[in-house]
Amino acid sequence: MHLMKTLIHSAAVLAFSVGAAAAQTVSIATLPQGSVWNTMGNVIAGAVREHGNVRMVVQPYGGNLAMMQAVNQGLAEFSINDVNDVIVAFAGEVDYRDNAQSGLRIVAKLNALPVGLYVRESLGIERIEELKGKRVSSGWDAFPLAKSHVSAILTAGGLTYDDVVGVPVPGLIRGSDDLVSGRTDAAFFAVGGPKVAEVDAAVEGVRFLKIESDASALERIQAVRPAFYFSEVTPAPFRVGIEAPMMMVTWDNVLVAGAHVPDETVHALLTAMAEAKDALGEAYPPLRAFSVETAYVDYPGVAYHPGAVRFFEENAVAKRAF
């Protein structure tokens, strides 16, 4: 009840708080069209424009490095990313070595995102371990984030990249296109991605491969990135390639802002998203998981934007343990 009263109060003062945000258009950096993040970015932009008068445009970039650099350098105000990548980007580790993106700030957890390797149904395999000796997308020069994702998925099945035949691809969409053309046997994507549905129609059926999810497997994937975990995914119309309940490697999608973004702009965006919660879920079902009450998570090694902190404190939302 307190939360609802506070949200009503926030909505009442939105015209004032959004003033700075409405005076200029803000942008959200995403991956290219067909990706989950691009879809989410477009849905968020449309919803907050309608429900909060926050003018947001979607700016696609070739990969996660370019997205984070755009936000860090002030070329974009917001982005959506795997929290694992934000952690290493902020610290200047892995793909960001000697290039720390210290201007990144967390705004909110959006939803959990299960990912996997998927194949043509006609290949006749069902588990990751059956990929041994098969052709799998690799390289990822434009989307280096995928290296850790695919490595975690493979290790959950007891494999490494040394056990498969790597087929270099620059980015996410190309990897799936190569599955259609027959250049690869397995491609990487997030569950619910529009591109997976496109590939499914083109090759007359795809399936995500099953993995192990016991304590040993969890230890292995968290050795790749500490904020990976397992979640159960059930069949749904938008989850193409999921034929039965299965465990999958998962991370949290987070909304990111640059430290340069005014507190009022971040506060106004979160207020608009809270008002648009139902519309977000109707436009893109995975966003039904977004909730103000669960959006404030204590992730290791990253800081929240002050505008987000003020929003959560005003709405009596306590930071949740990861």
Rank of each mutant, 00 (worst) to 15 (best):
F16H: 13
V203G: 06
V58H: 10
N64F: 09
Y304F: 11
N53M: 05
E282T: 12
E198Y: 04
M4D: 14
W37I: 06
V199L: 12
A259G: 05
N84V: 03
A12Y: 11
L154D: 03
D95P: 09
E219D: 12
N38L: 02
F312G: 00
D252H: 06
S138N: 09
V233F: 10
A236R: 15
F290T: 01
V233Q: 10
G158E: 07
I8C: 06
V107M: 04
G192W: 05
D162I: 00
V36F: 12
P306V: 03
D214R: 09
R127M: 05
F322Y: 15
A201W: 02
N81G: 01
G301P: 13
E313A: 09
V115W: 00
Y299V: 08
D177V: 01
I211S: 08
V43A: 12
I173D: 01
K147V: 06
S122Y: 04
F78W: 07
L117K: 03
V94D: 12
T265L: 04
A283W: 07
N84P: 07
F90P: 00
P286G: 08
Y118T: 02
A112Y: 07
V58N: 12
T25Q: 13
K319V: 03
E243H: 13
L270H: 05
G62I: 13
F312A: 04
D82H: 02
D263W: 07
L145A: 14
A142N: 12
L145G: 12
P144Q: 12
Q73P: 00
V71H: 01
Y296Q: 07
W140K: 09
T160Q: 02
L154T: 00
T25S: 09
M67R: 09
L255H: 04
K195Q: 13
W37P: 00
R207W: 07
W251G: 09
G19I: 00
R220V: 01
A268M: 13
A289Q: 14
F228C: 09
R207A: 14
E264M: 11
A202V: 03
M246E: 11
E282N: 13
R225C: 03
T39N: 02
V266W: 02
I80R: 00
M273C: 08
A321F: 09
W251E: 14
M273S: 14
V13E: 14
S231R: 13
Y96H: 13
V206A: 11
V86I: 13
A274L: 08
G175N: 08
Q73I: 01
G63V: 07
E293A: 14
R97Q: 15
A215K: 10
I153N: 02
Y96W: 13
H2D: 12
V164E: 06
L269W: 03
R288V: 06
G241R: 01
I242G: 11
V165A: 05
F188W: 15
S216M: 05
V36M: 11
L131I: 04
A70L: 03
K134R: 15
G124M: 09
Y161R: 05
V43R: 02
A257Q: 03
V43L: 06
M247P: 01
T184F: 05
Q222A: 02
L113E: 07
V297I: 12
R55Y: 01
A215E: 15
R127P: 00
V266E: 01
V167H: 01
M67C: 06
V203H: 07
F322A: 14
E198K: 10
A201Q: 14
